[in-house]
Amino acid sequence: MNNASPPLNVHDLTVAYQRQPVLWNVDYAAPAARLVAIVGPNGAGKSTLIKALLELIPRATGEVQFFGQSYAESRQRVAYVPQRTTVDWDFPVTAHDVVTMGLYGRLGWFRPVTRAARLEALEALERVGLADFARRQISQLSGGQQQRVFLARALVQRADLYLMDEPFAGVDAATERTIIGLLQALRSEGKTALVVHHDLQTVQEYFDDVLLLNMRVIAAGPVATVFNAENLKRTYGGKLALLDQVGHQMVLAGRTQ
């Protein structure tokens, strides 16, 4: 196993929706055993970046490597925590069932869910403080509890890199503490987490590194050196008008072709 390679290495990544680029030439290498906040205004392409890394949306250009390998080769080492709002919480499954889904990949095709897998899922639920809620149907959980279920599903995967899309959005204080405690535990195990984060006030407290994003990488590095007023102003100083205009022109040009 190539342990010298960074958990994530992105080179010249450009992503476009319907020909309109939303992320331009992203170059980034995530350091190992760090908690990284992805910060930027709405529409800056934070979620898009994560989805493009996981090949959920096509890349226009660029190369992405996880631990020096392609995503297909390193899937088991990368865990994804999507936004809570992406699924229907009325779905007929329990919290325990959802966490077990994190083990389906390891179980493989056709194999029914084993007892061992269910036990492992229960342990993960315990780690996020929801052992008592294992048998609850997921709609009977609060928003924060639902977010923790998603986190537990990623935990059972025992990945080395965690990509989280706004895990702190609309959760209660208890959940926020649980999540941050878990993130710190993961870091001490030498694991890395990239977390889309909205609350600028807590960035310094929670994270080691920051990736400032607004359609392109504005700045990236340790919080102490990068997270300053000037960089934030550049990140949040409105949408980047020029990039937006050029993108729009590319769409128009495409239509008239």
């Binding site: 996981l54 090949e55 959920l56 297909a72 899937r75 994804y80 999507p82 992406t86 699924v87 229907d88 779905f91 499954v93 959802v98 889904m101 389906y104 990949g105 599903r153």
Partner: peptide, 10 residues
């Protein structure tokens, strides 16, 4: 339940 997660998990 979660087709996006399924896709990301391969």
């Amino acid at each position: 339940f979660d087709s996006e997660y399924a896709l990301a998990s391969g």
